[in-house]
Design a protein around this nucleic acid. Sequence first.
DNA 1: CACCCTCGAGTTCA
DNA 2: CTCGAGGGTG
Length: 721
Amino acid sequence: MSIPAAARKRRDELVDLVNEARANYYQHDKPTISDADYDKYFQELVELETKHPELVAGDSPTQSVGGEASDEFGEFEHPTRMWSLDNVFDYEELDAWFARVGNHNFLCELKIDGLAINAVYRNGVLETLATRGSGAVGENVTASLEYLTCIPKQLTASKGTKFPELLEVRGEVYFSLAEFDQINLEVTATGRTAFANPRNAAAGTLRQRIDNRVAAVAEATKRAEGKTADSKQVASLTKHSDELQRATSALSRLGLIVHGIGTHEGFEIPTQSHAYELLKSWGLPTSDRVKVLKSVAEVKKYVEHHGEHRHDIEHDIDGVVIKVDSLAEQDELGFTARAPRWAIAYKYPPTVVRTRLLDIGVQVGRTGRITPRAAVEPVLVAGSTVSFATLHNGYEVVRKGLLLGDMVFLRKAGDVIPEILGPVVELRDGSEREFQMPTKCPECGSKLAPEKEDDKDLRCLNTRSCPAQLRGRLEHLGSRSILDIEGLGEKAARALLEDKIISDEGDLFSLTAEILQQSDFFVKGANRELAENAKLLLAQLEIAKTKPLWRFICALSMRHIGPPTAQALTREFTSLERIAAAPAEKLAQIEGIGQTIAESITQWFAEDWHAEIIEKWKRAGCVLEQELVESGPQPLAGLTIVVTGTMVDFTRDGASEEITSRGGKASGSVSKNTDFVVVGPGAGSKETKAIELGRPILDEAGFKILLSDGPAAALAHLGLA
DNA sequence: CACCCTCGAGTTCA
DNA sequence: CTCGAGGGTG
């Protein structure tokens, strides 16, 4: 039977999608799609392969060896929630925490960079092992228990021991650095990409469906031992056995340190340290680096000691955890929406590495701004390899004292964005050369100049026809946050311009199939049929034509005008025509718009080719007016709310819309004017700032209460009434 | 005029 | 995340 070409194609797409998602998650430490999407694609692939077994091939993730994401996990609801910890990054913040909690005995321990787990024992017998997951619900990985040597299946009893009926033990599963290197050697030897860091390796190893692997071996055994078995089936058995063996071997090399208890029925303990002693006496692995310290000074000494020796430890750590030792005192301090008040994580500063500054190139942005960008000798920092880092502007280069060829210090700001800190002056040998900002635009050759006297930014003033600016504007207008036109990304923008299909953004909405057919990028096959990407683009352009006016205003790339300002303009004037006709004095009356921006707007409209863009868009059917929407109740009127980190049920833009539609203001930065800070997992400095300024912090559940029941209910949810 | 806040723009890794 | 720059306040 032949396989339909469409099935083959879809199968290839799915394999790529899933494999890419896995690589991003495990090898690069940056998830790109949601777990739900991942499961959806994986499931579709499984079904497709079940229907057409001939399609199953070695590159399919359904066949791949351990250490990667699994398909469906059994969910496990933790009897007692697994909390996160609040972080501090320096002594000032740590002192603030000490001041909040008061005098106690403090239990200090290392914060292992691994995977948090919850082990549930019933009457001393291990019943369930689950990952932390969201904290409320994790993934049930009990199936792997058999192969984990790091965790006792049965607690050891000493004389007279009576085990609690239900006991939850919390701990961290990890690979030692030595095992991590070993695992990665094995991984690369079988042709797969290495894990980015020990944490991902541990997560990948534990979160695999070992039971599926066992089943696969059983199945292959049955076939290979059948009467009609051929060499292919024997080979398949060998392959599946090898995979199972590698997976179980990796599992057996995971380590565990326990660091807490959840539910504990039937016994009482006075302190955290007593709890550890008890767990240890039952045979659970505790750390011998745990210390109970009586003063702030001693705690700081502990923090410093392990900061200096963090690389001498057999596993990765990213900080120190400090807990109030007495459980009674813990109870008194209680919890915030997401973390205990009685514990804090002191995070060590992000790693700084040294690398060579090879060159400084310049980029031309959509507004013509010239941005120098450092090319460095690729270097591994905090889990990924960095090759470039922005330098913002020419003055930055001078201020940092950088010379081409310098060894430089580099770190990841917020653990994400590479940042060059400065040169290692001692290592200069005289061959280094100064960097000069260009005087001509690298893309169109126009002269570069600051827009205003004293501006630090250099700009290419050829707004109309500089290819970099045209491309940038098209890309910007197509992006998710503006008109959200799928099929109009970097490549499409480049093709539209280079193949001279459009001369600028004005022509965009009058594109037709016939016009697109003139470009190689939008056709396929010998008879130049319209390709899928072209159909997508045309359909998306049609949809975009009726998007809200403020999005069109942003799409025009007027200087200084982003979403908030565009929305303010729309509210005041309701149509693009009225904005174009408004005198500067009138525009400047709007909050957030002063003389500078007002004049910049009127000047923009005075430009002939700008007016033409608008004419063309209108002729093509773009709706450049705001129909008055009946606004619902406005429970958030007057409130400024900041959303940070990731939400389960909202995108960032979605959350902003929920806020503005209820009369609130969605802002991007936390200040003392902020009324609420909504914090999801993965939040960074904004959360720290919120704590610093004492602003109320909501989790996603609290945010939903805020949206539905208003600020008073949200505060009540926090126990602040 | 000094300061704080907000917004805009560019941004790194696959 | 970070810098620059505009807006607004005291």
